[in-house]
Nucleic acid binder design. Structure first.
Lengths: 219, 219
DNA sequence: ACCTGAACACCGTTCAAGT
DNA sequence: ACCTGAACACCGTTCAAGT
């Protein structure tokens, strides 16, 4: 392989592709080397280790999520948008999201998004202390929730099916005497999908924030 | 080692202890074998593989979280309690929680808790469809949020410190021209701890649920 | 029926050697 | 300066052999 053919960017590109196509277990240094057309150890010239690559992949994910993100006319739409963007990027790359976990990188895309979100909370009339706290609530909600969903989706198909099946079986067959309340809602319980759950949680959070805002969003 | 000295329960006990004491990386089959006083491969007599052990550990965690959980007089206290219990158990065993991830086991403790939560939502006057959806919101909130927090806490001390430090440095030094809103809230941003954030998110969620409930909690 | 221990096919990382 | 390839110290799992 010629010199300079390996760059941090190309390594992150290929890592992300490997994670997308082969899942968390498919991302190994031998595979990464082969996909790059280089010896597996050549990567260590550019990253201190596998963990550093994962951190760079995490950064790429947030960049993808947040590119083009800017404030909406109504501040509460700004908050909703950033949460949906993070979830969208994480679910588009579940294995990468699951491995990079709750580690953020504070690079420009993330900083700009943080600034925009805090600005939206300022527009809502919140003081510094409240804005700081609510920024953390919104950011953690987006990252932790989406990260958890991504971790589930990054399970291999077989495990995931087994998981979903066991869930369905257990609740569907819940003994009406032992679990009367589960029994009552067992049918609608299976029409709920995780996008509904996320959107509902987001709506509930934002409604409460709007309720507390010194300035409501529609002015 | 005499026969019968290895039981699934003892294996889960020791696995959880190993995870607590040595973190995610400290939980290996050789170590597990040694800690059990048996050959590492003897464990395969009782569990199909490492993943099955982790699943059993996840179940143990939920059991620990939910033992003694029962409905409160006010239904919204029931919802708050279950969320705090899950978070408490996960943060008490961050490595175990991080590895078992979003995989639940539907064993009795979990089923009973689900029934209690759905019952509380019934007390609130929600119909079957709404109760099912809100049950998922509350359960996913507790599991995904706590799981994400646990994943962060299960990073080795060095990485965690590096992470926290980088975070502090980046926001503290945010350029007031480039990131004016971050700059405005930079001081209170560091007095926020993750317990505050969790409690605030929980409060916001529950307030919205109370707002929508056909029957308010204080009756 | 349960446990042992050698063996297998991996893995991430190091380091001397090449160009 | 950048890449190679042998080597190292692991890892999870299988399977024949013991008792």
């Amino acid at each position: 392989m010629r010199r300079g053919a390996l760059t941090p960017e190309r390594i992150v590109d290929v890592s992300l592709r490997l994670l997308d196509e082969h899942g968390t277990d498919g991302f190994t240094m031998p595979r990464l080397g082969k996909a790059l057309g280089a010896d597996q150890t050549a990567v260590y010239r550019h990253f201190a280790g596998k963990d550093e690559i994962l951190l760079a992949v995490a950064d790429r994910l947030l960049e993808e999520a947040l590119t083009g993100f800017e404030a909406h006319p109504h501040w509460s739409d700004t908050l909703a948008d950033v949460c949906r963007r993070v979830r969208g990027a994480y679910l588009a790359h579940p294995a990468a999201a699951a491995l990079s976990g709750p580690r953020t990188t504070r690079r420009p895309a993330e900083m700009r998004a943080a600034d925009t979100v805090i600005g939206a909370l300022g527009d809502a009339g919140f003081g510094a202390a409240e804005a700081a706290l609510l920024y953390r609530v919104v950011a953690d909600f987006a990252l932790l929730w989406s990260g958890g969903e991504a971790a589930f989706h990054s399970l291999d198909a077989e495990t995931k099916a087994h998981e979903a099946d066991g869930w369905a079986r257990a609740y569907r067959a819940a003994d009406p005497r032992e679990y009367p309340h589960i029994h009552r809602v067992r049918d609608p319980l299976f029409e709920v999908d995780s996008a509904d759950v996320f959107e509902t949680a987001l709506r509930l959070l934002l409604d409460s924030i709007e309720q507390r805002a010194p300035r409501p969003p529609q002015t």
